[in-house]
Design a protein around this nucleic acid. Sequence first.
RNA 1: GUGGCUGUAGCUCAAUAGGUAGAGCACAGGAUUGUGAUUCCUGGUGUCGUGGGUUCGAUUCCCAUCAGCCACCCCA
Length: 431
Amino acid sequence: MSTLQAVRGMHDILPEHMPYWSKLERALCDLFAAYGYSEMRLPIVEKTELFKRSIGEVTDIVEKEMYSFDDRNGESLTLRPEGTAGCVRAGIEHGLIQPQQAHKWWYSGAMFRHERPQKGRYRQFHQVGIEAFGLEGPDVDVELILLTRRLWQVLGLSAVVQLEINTLGSSESRHAYRALLVEYFNAHRDRLDEDSVRRLERNPLRILDSKNPDLKPVIEAAPRLYDSLDEASRTHFSQLQELLQAVGVSFTVNPHLVRGLDYYNRTVFEWKTDRLGAQAAVAAGGRYDGLVAQLGGKPVPAIGCALGMERVVALLQEIGAAPLAERVDVYMVMAGDAALRAGLGLAEQWRDDIPGLRMLVNTGGGSFKAQFRRADRSAARWAVILGDDEVREQVVTLKPLREQGEQLRVAWADASGTLKSLLGLTTSSMT
RNA sequence: GUGGCUGUAGCUCAAUAGGUAGAGCACAGGAUUGUGAUUCCUGGUGUCGUGGGUUCGAUUCCCAUCAGCCACCCCA
């Protein structure tokens, strides 16, 4: 192969896509500030052991999807496949996660999973993680859902996402149920398909969610999770539903909603869409009350949620959302060496005089026609014209590009004042 | 990891029952010796994804490989 290509599944996000990303990122930042969640930044690489102990040894992620390698000292390191483990590790390591204390954090960044690339699925992808520690819920469970629901509202995506919730019960009741299920499906092993036999070892709860219609009778006769649910989890779940109803959040209970990571318990939820092909989950999360202790911290309840940024961006494009357009105030058109010399200086002076000014100075020469074409395509509101005549008379010509109007000729000494009032710029206009 | 489809100019695509390729858009210059649309004229580029095989000759046929897409699986 003579030309270099990006590594499979690791995509470039080009300038033309950034307006959608910026729209999402700004909305998120505003929301986190509004709800009182603090940002943290975490390493992309962690010890492999961390993911094995948190996500679970027999999950797909740990068994076959991690980018792991040996460090120079022989220790196994891994490119993070998800964010919660590193967040919990950091919280414990710095003594932040303590009983009787609440913390609400968020972070974002690249995650890595060696899966087959597909629409909405990449080997390097970006997640926003939201975590809350030290709170039993279900009030904080609802807050997390409300925060994400508000994000959809802000982005105009409410109509294309639906909320599903479920409970997995306490770790104990979940494990008891799991054993019950394994026993049941083992007794009917001959009626399972190949995938489900494999799931029997790995994640038996997922058999319940099989897409194979042949399995429907076996699945319907299987023991139900709700029958094994402990009393406290039952109460937690019904309070959660009452609170959601009280604040007008619509949802469906999906008894088959199971998370792929081992550490979840009690509340799990998922925002799904039918606009992105098979990759339906846009954001998903749940409680992980046992994880902090499991990783060596004190027992502290926690809940978290992850949002797939590529998927949200894809949704924004899918529904034809308006990208966040960058404003351009002025495009400077120049003809000749004298104009270039004068123009570069004038432009710098205006940048000093007019805070917030967004000005493109023509580079690379070109005829007036070409320069005006560039000015037009830049979406600038005004063209500043500097040719031989203007340089001789020490003036600039200002031409409105977005609306009808006469050209103005302004002396260099007055130009920044005139521009400032024409543009109506104040120091705080940062659109 | 499994299966199906695809891969030609910067982008979207066409063509050649095997004889080394075109169009639109975009870009540059001009008609308009200093003014954005439209129109018209002019201009260039392709290792036809990569490697190998068959053939006098392969972009076309065969094999492999890489990548993309779609689904399974899994998940954000």
